[in-house]
Amino acid sequence: MADSNPHRYPDADVAAVYRAIAERRDMRHFLPDPVAPQLLERLLWAAHLAPSVGYMQPWRFVRITDRALRERMHGLVEEERRATARALGEREEDFMRLKVEGLLEAAEVIVVALADGREKHVFGRRTLPEMDLASVACAIQNMWLAARAEGIGLGWVSIFDPDKLAALLAMPAGARPVAVLCIGHVEVFYPKPMLEIHEWATRKPLEAVLFENAWQAEADAASAG
């Protein structure tokens, strides 16, 4: 029984965690209202409290407050958006109709990057060096869930050339941008993921991605078909 676990949160708190997970959305539409400094700090602290392999804390956050710099970043995103559309072939027109970022509308823009000097961190990464990236993803997810609980929209933009963005932000050798986060107030949260609304894709059923004891090729093939 749930009440027999002394470490369990009260029912209302547990429900709030699951609600934030279920209602989190990748937002693209924002209101111009500013985000209070204390609220932004809470979101960044939520990110900084994320787990990291070997406690390496590989995340770095760059807050973009210069409008001209934001516009140059938007240019990089637009350049890659068009290249991505061309690479999609028959879905090019569908993709170009999607709104894939809110860089010029969001109240705040945060670039999340991998720190330089990560090669010195071996604990937990000797055979899986990509665990630094996994750790940064955990930080972003922490911020995303905290933002949803606070009623603030967050959109993860990954359509950019990382080398060009790194150069634009004067990142040192070895550092690498992972995400451009658009953060701000929204008029409404999407009722379901935007790409589902636009019939770009649908969420797979849980049984299609859950295996037991070994990889189930037939289930994997069925979910792909």
Score class of each variant (00 low, 15 high):
F61L: 03
W144L: 03
R125G: 07
E105V: 14
A68Y: 00
T65E: 01
K99Q: 15
R126A: 14
G117A: 10
L154T: 08
V112P: 02
E90K: 03
G75V: 01
G155W: 00
A147S: 07
A137V: 02
V100T: 14
E101G: 05
L69A: 03
C138L: 04
D132I: 06
E79G: 06
G124V: 07
V109T: 12
V109S: 10
S158N: 10
A83M: 14
G117P: 12
G89W: 12
A113I: 04
V136G: 03
D94E: 12
G117Y: 11
W144E: 05
M73E: 08
S135P: 10
F95T: 05
E93T: 15
E93A: 14
E108R: 15
E78P: 01
A83C: 07
H74T: 10
A68N: 13
L69P: 00
E71P: 01
A106S: 15
L69K: 11
E78R: 08
V122H: 15
M131S: 08
M96N: 09
D132P: 01
E78T: 13
E92K: 12
N142W: 00
R72T: 03
R148F: 00
W156L: 04
R63I: 08
R70G: 06
R86P: 01
M143C: 10
K99A: 03
K120L: 12
R72L: 07
P129L: 05
R126G: 06
P129D: 11
R86K: 08
A85S: 02
R118Y: 15
R91E: 10
L128E: 06
V62Q: 11
R81G: 09
E101T: 05
D132Y: 02
E119V: 13
H74R: 01
N142V: 01
F123S: 11
G124T: 08
R67F: 03
R91K: 09
G89R: 04
D132Q: 15
V109N: 09
G155Q: 01
E92R: 15
R86Q: 04
P129C: 10
H74V: 01
M131D: 01
A115Q: 13
